[in-house]
């Protein structure tokens, strides 16, 4: 589960940077972020995982297994984080921006005092969905043999005969984790929601 924590932190950081890049006034920066999202969102995560773990060593770039799984999870989910954040930024009404600008806030002041607080509140729920997606996708690390829940369960299941019990246990573990997360996100969402 270290995969989830590290992957989530990385994805949040990279995703936020990308989201800021996407609203930058400089065209090249915007284009670079857009290209990143097109590429990393559309290549299936198993393909990225295999390419990273089995492909890159051919180029003489060797990462240990666990960090490379984390990196792939970060690059994949950062694209989703960025899209979610951007939809949150879009939710801020244009009139409010204009008002803030005419009150003399600069672009960064507007961002910090007006756009971000609202955008984050809007984004809690969808962001929670991305987190749950990340939790589920950590299982993909099993493909390349990182010893996480799915992989370990499968190994035990292959060695022992009681496949049903072991894998069933892993299934239940995922369900519990995801449902708990969903509850937490929902309560957080209620807490930060704007009263309309």
């Amino acid at each position: 589960m270290g995969l989830v924590v590290l992957g989530w932190i990385g994805a949040l950081v990279l995703g936020t940077v990308l989201a800021i890049m996407r609203v930058s006034p400089i065209r090249t920066v915007r284009m670079a972020a857009t290209a990143y999202i097109l590429v990393f969102r559309n290549i299936p995560i198993p393909v990225q995982m295999v390419l990273f773990v089995f492909g890159l060593p051919l180029l003489g770039i060797v990462f240990p297994l666990f960090p490379s799984a984390v990196i792939v999870l970060v690059t994949y989910h950062a694209a989703f984080v960025c899209e979610t954040l951007r939809s949150g930024l879009n939710a801020v009404a244009v009139g409010e921006l204009e008002a803030s600008r005419s009150l003399g806030f600069g672009p960064f002041g507007t961002m910090r005092h007006l756009v971000f607080p609202q955008a984050f509140a809007v984004v809690v729920q969808p962001m929670g969905n991305v987190l749950i997606l990340l939790v589920k996708n950590t299982s993909v690390a099993a493909i390349v043999g990182v010893a996480e829940l799915t992989f370990t369960a499968d190994q035990i299941a292959i060695e022992e005969v009681q496949a049903f019990a072991v894998l069933g246990g892993a299934l239940i573990a995922y369900v519990v984790v995801c449902l708990v997360l969903k509850r937490l996100v929902a309560s957080l969402d209620r807490k930060v929601a704007f009263k309309k």
Partner: peptide, 11 residues
């Protein structure tokens, strides 16, 4: 909704 497809596939 909470189960990863990969785990489902193993199962």
């Amino acid at each position: 909704n909470s189960i990863p497809v990969l785990l489902l596939l193993f199962f």
